[in-house]
């Protein structure tokens, strides 16, 4: 983090940059939007052909790819919009209720 904004809510008025400029590209990453999610995408790697449609369509760049293969979802930023699940030609992605997921995790 070049531009440390962890504590920005508590900055005094004169600690902000002149003209509200943002001096670092890509800093939206620091803002975790995963908490907005009510359903999460879960991938069935058996069905997945790594066509990468989900990676292309994801509006929050939350599909993480390594070596041209789907690795995982970035749940810190995924808002659960479900585009990936709709677009997947193999129906390899299902949207699971967050509460259900948490219950499954607990059991």
């Amino acid at each position: 983090m070049k531009w440390d904004i962890k504590n920005i809510k508590n900055w005094k008025y004169n600690q902000h940059l002149e003209g509200a400029l943002i001096p670092e590209a890509g800093n939206a990453e620091y803002y975790k939007t995963g908490g907005w999610r009510t359903e999460r995408p879960v991938i069935d790697k058996e069905k997945c052909t790594n066509c990468l449609f989900c990676w292309i369509f994801c509006p929050d760049t939350s599909v993480i790819v390594e070596d041209a293969k789907i690795k995982e979802f970035d749940y810190d930023h995924c808002k659960g919009c479900g585009v990936c699940a709709v677009e997947c030609p193999k129906s390899a992605i299902s949207m699971i209720d967050e509460n259900e997921f948490k219950k499954q995790e607990n059991t």
């Binding site: 920005i8 900055w11 003209g19 509200a20 400029l21 943002i22 001096p23 590209a25």
Partner: peptide, 14 residues
């Protein structure tokens, strides 16, 4: 030294 100009402050409110 790239900067973004004209940011939205709605998330943090400054």
């Amino acid at each position: 030294n790239p900067v973004a100009v004209g940011s939205f402050d709605g998330l943090h409110g400054f």
